[in-house]
Simulated scan of single mutants.
Amino acid sequence: MLGKNVVLIDDCLDYTAVLKKNLEREGFKIKSFKHPVAGLDYVKENYAEVDLILLDLMMPELSGLEFLSALKESKNKSLFKFKICVLSDKHDLLEIETSFKLGANEYFLKSENIEILVERIYEFMEITKHPVPDQDKEFISLLEITNIIHDFQVVEFDENNVILYSREELPIHSTIQINSEKLKKYKQTNMPINCIVDNCEILDERVLITCQYLDQAA
């Protein structure tokens, strides 16, 4: 998996805990720091092991912009291969421009839904390769053309339907298999769940897909 090792630097412990939990659930390894100076020292010493830095801009000890400036002046700057994504509570155009000038690669608002943010991090890190699925991976298989879609997020489900987000649109009335541990546990089976696509709704960069369980279909 590309972009697996993440350094998260944010003095807000509640936000850090939620974001860390969601990223770890998706397979990322997270090293989090409340104090940016400690995070900066870690990055400088372990830069070869870092794929992504998630950096809060508003911190009292050392601001995100000051953090970026310190990295830019580091003697190891030419060896840095990681990407940097800054996080902020406000949409400040000057702050965004300054962040990019100091080396940031992306800018996300902390007000975004955490699940959407995680999806955007996946896209940002270009984690788009679709390996051959096995029973330990979560995937959607479009049975007619055996197209494997890994990047999906179950939104909700009940005894009749399942609703999920994906980056790829699925044909209406197509038959799919969903390999999701939570769904398999709910349906009390070890096999992927067969469904029929009822509706696809494009929302920004993602698609909201509503499916009906095949064993519930008329």
Rank of each mutant, 00 (worst) to 15 (best):
H173A: 09
K185Q: 12
E169R: 14
I193D: 05
S174I: 01
N199P: 00
M191L: 15
K182A: 07
V207S: 04
L183G: 04
I172F: 04
D198F: 02
K184G: 06
R206D: 02
C211E: 02
R206I: 14
C195T: 10
L183C: 06
S174M: 03
I196M: 07
K184Y: 03
C200A: 13
N199S: 11
K184D: 09
E201F: 13
V207P: 04
I172R: 15
M191I: 12
C211N: 08
S174W: 01
D204W: 02
M191K: 12
C211D: 01
V197M: 07
I172A: 07
E205G: 00
P192M: 07
L203Q: 13
L170N: 04
C195M: 09
I202A: 08
K187I: 04
L203K: 11
S180Y: 05
E181N: 10
Q177K: 15
D198G: 01
L203A: 08
N179A: 14
R206G: 00
N179G: 04
I172V: 15
M191A: 13
N199F: 11
K182L: 14
N179I: 02
V207A: 03
N194F: 09
Q177I: 04
E201Y: 10
S174H: 07
S180W: 06
E181H: 09
S174N: 09
I196W: 00
I193V: 15
Y186F: 15
E169N: 06
V207K: 03
I176N: 06
L170Q: 08
L203N: 06
N194T: 15
N190S: 13
N190I: 13
D204C: 05
C200H: 01
P171F: 02
T189A: 09
I196E: 05
N194I: 07
C200Q: 09
E169Y: 09
T210V: 02
L208K: 15
N179D: 10
I172D: 10
N190W: 00
P171T: 06
I172M: 05
I176H: 03
L208Y: 08
I209H: 02
T210N: 12
T175K: 14
M191V: 11
N190F: 09
D198I: 11
V197I: 14
E201I: 10
E181M: 02
H173V: 04
I209E: 01
Q177N: 10
E181G: 09
K182E: 15
K182Y: 01
I196D: 00
K182W: 00
K185E: 15
K182Q: 12
E205C: 03
L203W: 01
P171W: 00
N190A: 12
L208I: 15
E169Q: 12
E201K: 14
I209L: 06
